[in-house]
């Protein structure tokens, strides 16, 4: 049975805190761009963007990233690395500080794929990672810079993030 562990209010607060931390650690946010990993990472990116706009009155570019072609759950034979058809990013990330956003950080494989996708689109000055939930169990040496909530889990459990834009309400459930 799914159990709600984070409600809408706490999620809102977590996103606000991530925004404050982004401001605090960047001393000026002029060269920032936000890249959201489809699907819910994009909404996380947009919510951070709107908060930055309210607080600092600066519009940060936001892009959507589809990592499907870069996933590592296909076998090597299936995958033809030289022939990846990625959707182009609609923004320039060269020499920018990219903040990659996603809803849940788990094995780290999605983030690795996302970094591959970013690298093929340009050469960012720096890539940081912001996630709503870090549930542990990494399989790759990847760490988030901005974490909404650390939720220790067992690998048997499932974490389900719902966001207003697509699911009608904000909440995080565990089952």
């Amino acid at each position: 049975m799914a159990k709600e562990i984070i409600d809408g209010q706490t999620m809102t607060r977590a996103l606000t805190r991530i925004t404050y931390e982004i401001i605090e650690r960047n001393k000026g946010i002029d060269d920032l761009v936000l890249v959201g990993i489809k699907t819910r990472g994009v909404f996380v990116a947009h919510r951070i963007e709107s908060r930055l706009k309210q607080l600092e009155n600066i519009k940060i570019p936001v892009a959507e990233l589809d990592i499907t072609p870069y996933r590592d759950d296909k076998t090597h034979d299936e995958k033809d690395i030289t022939n990846i058809k990625a959707e182009p990013l609609n923004i320039d990330i060269n020499n920018k500080h990219v903040i990659l956003t996603d809803d849940v950080l788990y094995t780290g494989r999605t983030i690795r794929a996302a970094m591959d996708a970013l690298m093929s689109a340009g050469r960012p000055k720096k890539i940081s990672l912001a996630v709503l939930v870090d549930r542990g169990h990494r399989e790759l040496p990847i760490r988030a810079d901005f974490v909404g909530k650390n939720i220790p889990t067992s690998q048997k459990e499932k974490i389900k993030v719902s966001m207003k834009e697509i699911d009608g309400e904000d909440k995080i459930e565990i089952e």
């Binding site: 404050y20 309210q54 607080l55």
Partner: peptide, 13 residues
């Protein structure tokens, strides 16, 4: 006043 509205700028709450 014990109950006056304040807006959180970031989220509009």
């Amino acid at each position: 006043e014990s109950s006056l509205a304040v807006k959180e700028v970031a989220s509009g709450k």
